[in-house]
Design a binder for these strands. Sequence first.
DNA 1: CCAAAAGTGTTAAGCCTACACCCATGT
DNA 2: ACATGGGTGTAGGCTTAACACTTTTGG
Lengths: 229, 229
Amino acid sequence: MSADGYDPHDFPPFAVTVDLVMLTVRPPSIDVLLVKRSENPGRGKWALPGGFVGHDQDLLGAAEGKLAEKTGVRIDRTHLEQLETFGAPGRDSRMRVVSVAHLAMLSDPGVPDTDDAAWHNVGSLDLSTLAFDHGEILRTGLERAKAKLEYTTLATSFCGPEFTIGELRAVYEAVWGISLDPANFHRKVMKTDGFVEATGRTESAGRGRPARTYAAGPATDLHPPISRS
Amino acid sequence: MSADGYDPHDFPPFAVTVDLVMLTVRPPSIDVLLVKRSENPGRGKWALPGGFVGHDQDLLGAAEGKLAEKTGVRIDRTHLEQLETFGAPGRDSRMRVVSVAHLAMLSDPGVPDTDDAAWHNVGSLDLSTLAFDHGEILRTGLERAKAKLEYTTLATSFCGPEFTIGELRAVYEAVWGISLDPANFHRKVMKTDGFVEATGRTESAGRGRPARTYAAGPATDLHPPISRS
DNA sequence: CCAAAAGTGTTAAGCCTACACCCATGT
DNA sequence: ACATGGGTGTAGGCTTAACACTTTTGG
């Protein structure tokens, strides 16, 4: 674009793909969906799900399609955003590929693991064993997710349609790897407009006082101060 | 990539470009470098500088090249980062183009305006008149710059090699469009490790007590709390 | 001396943390 | 009864915003 001095019919051709970092939280584990490569390069290695962008697809649409194909999850309760674009020469030995990585944050879809697709606990995963540069992409996605919990309300997208404040807190604790004061956490969530909405129901977790349940609120991108202590 | 089920020799071909949102601050104005298009589509319109990515170039390298070509500025004092990738079908009428937009934050390079490249005050610019989707890209870049001032020390990259705290404050005031308390701002900068380093010199701005000068400190990506009040 | 900008001191308001304490349930 | 997690109250410490005040220059 703005290709002054270039003949538009003589540009270097690229393949463009989308790759997805699909994260879900099953406290205290945080899991990523990986697929086993059936072809070279990287045959037998685990990789992020992804695929070529069609000629008439936009980037987010291509990512949505991959997400639906892998999880069958309805898009509305899932957060999906562009992460970063990776395009180093040689990252794919076959050809010049630019991959637009996306980050998806979803509640446990309950999709069972199969031979060629499985959820992996990121804590016990050696990133350097992933195919291509997918270890680096995954690291970037994890960092983004950690950062976003702090100043957005996106943690709710890791929860089901109805959840307790304790379950929400468990998401933060899993992602940040620390423990939070239940009392103070409760207050911070409550005082943040649009974070959660009361359902009026309660849910018993077996032992202890039953907790009120909530649904994700309308706010998604504002900046509440959920501090890390 | 991870193109299971696709023949790697039969992928949809794309052109990949980098476009640059090059911002500089001349308080109280914040300026962006635009080039006038000499070819269709969008002939005569202003556009972000950019160009095709070469087959052996990585994305950041391609952006650095464009930056050097347009400003002659040395890279070390300039902040350059990937912004977002834009790839909607039809954004360029000639072909399917994916543009990896980058954001550059630089101190006034003193490059004079020419017929086909000029610095524009973003406040008095109608974004909808830019070529392609460059108005949207510019808006994204401005938002990113505003946000990054709050929790990084990148404001120094808008300043020259030696600057006063007042000049640094003027950067914040220009970007955020508000005025800050000089006393409190001074303290916040000083108590943030690695934000600025004293030169030992002072500089008289004509009237008033001469200010000590500083150089950018080693920190670039930490999180000092420069609040917006 | 006066205006103006740099820089320091001070104080009151608000926020956050830590923890005490009560509530409601399963066993 | 007691253990367990949910939820509220509260005191102390810390940060912050607002502004008074001193410093150092040019006119």
